[in-house]
Design a binder for these strands. Structure first.
Lengths: 210, 210
DNA sequence: CTCTCATTCAAACGTCCGTTTGAACTATGC
DNA sequence: GCATAGTTCAAACGGACGTTTGAATGAGAG
């Protein structure tokens, strides 16, 4: 027997990330996942318990490093006094978009998975994602409100929601045209983070109501 | 027999809008739609031909007035010379968000339906939506590029995609917290359009790279 | 070797899916 | 009256779904 570098459990998580990111939760069957992972259909319920539990485990694994990095950056910023809005936006967005940039690795797959699940049509799935990221995200909201005292708290919350949405949008790559499309105006994807940060900073600094 | 103010065909379209907007395409069954519409399961295939054809008809009906209004506004602006970016953003966003504001009517249902389908997990569904709105939207992109000569065309395209995403996001109301949630910072929904336009104008004017 | 326990397997469970069928009903024109 | 075309109906189609079962397989410990 060949020595599998990945356990069945890991293969299931990897393929689930990919397929859930491509077809969404409802649009992806356990059979499609287990066939692609070269595993038996019963393996999902053995290792995770149910389809939803598999999704939960995949979300938790995918979000862990992002949450950790966001926490680390926010701690670091707050230790040096009141951070600026740009610093906060950068510290929030970059950990989520660094995934997209890891070409050739699993990064883009994980990014699409996260971006897709965050705005899944089913509210139950969205809540499942929110439970995995809420604690860190809430800290950024309050920090942003402190960094933008001239804007009303509800306006900052409005901008914050927009930041979440645009990040998920670019993570999911739902807007990417098929390769070779002549109308594709996308730049070097390495600049995506800088473009998005500049876009958000301008909107936060001058586009929020008092 | 009672006189039905709506035909079976119209009831199916109305309920399909509502259910597809709540659960997405894959997550909504024809049986759930036909039961809610008090119609027979076979009525869908009789009136439309298939589940996907029902969705296509619902998208076409929902988008028609939005597209018409966007075309009308753009014609009107271009007749008076080169429009500003703010004028273009307003002419694009307001027809889409006016739906959300029609409280008590079907507007919010239609808005959520449109916003959800525009970013459905399935690429086939997204393309189906794009086919219904592309012609008008493309005109706005070129007009925006003309209105922002200092920004690179690819940067304007980047901002344009962000505008589409944020509009769909607020249409779908995927971010609205459940009623009564104390963290709900949303303002008077009547001001949603103004807040989003101000947010986008600032980002387009000062957040795009040369 | 034997026992143990974790893992994998083929097969089947009941349920729901989108779609199709052919008869029954309804309203209108003759 | 009768014929006709449009619509609705209960019922069934084959297939895919998530889940469960119980036996087979594997490696490691005594």
């Amino acid at each position: 027997m060949e020595t599998p570098v990945e356990s069945t459990r890991e293969r299931l998580l990897n393929i689930a990330e990919q397929r859930f990111g491509e077809g969404g939760y409802e649009g992806t069957s356990l059979r499609a996942i287990t066939v692609a992972a070269a595993a038996n259909i019963a393996a999902v319920n053995y290792h995770f318990g149910s389809k939803e539990a598999l999704l939960r485990a995949a979300v938790a694994r995918a979000m862990a490093p992002v949450n950790t990095e966001r926490r680390r950056r926010l701690d670091q910023l707050e230790a040096k006094g009141q951070p600026t809005a740009e610093q906060l936006i950068r510290a929030f967005v970059e950990p989520g978009l660094d995934l997209v940039l890891r070409r050739g690795e699993r990064g883009p797959v994980v990014a699409r998975f996260i971006g897709r699940i965050a705005f899944d049509p089913s509210q139950r799935i969205r809540e499942l994602y929110a439970a995995e990221s809420d604690p860190v995200e809430a800290r950024y909201l309050t920090a942003l409100q402190a960094a933008l005292p001239r804007a009303a708290p509800s306006s900052v919350a409005f901008g914050y929601v927009n930041m979440l949405g645009l990040l998920a949008l670019h993570q999911s790559q739902a807007l990417a045209r098929p390769p070779g499309d002549p109308t594709d105006q996308s730049e070097d994807p390495g600049k995506l983070a800088e473009n998005l940060i500049a876009f958000l900073v301008a909107a936060f600094d001058r586009g929020l109501r008092a």
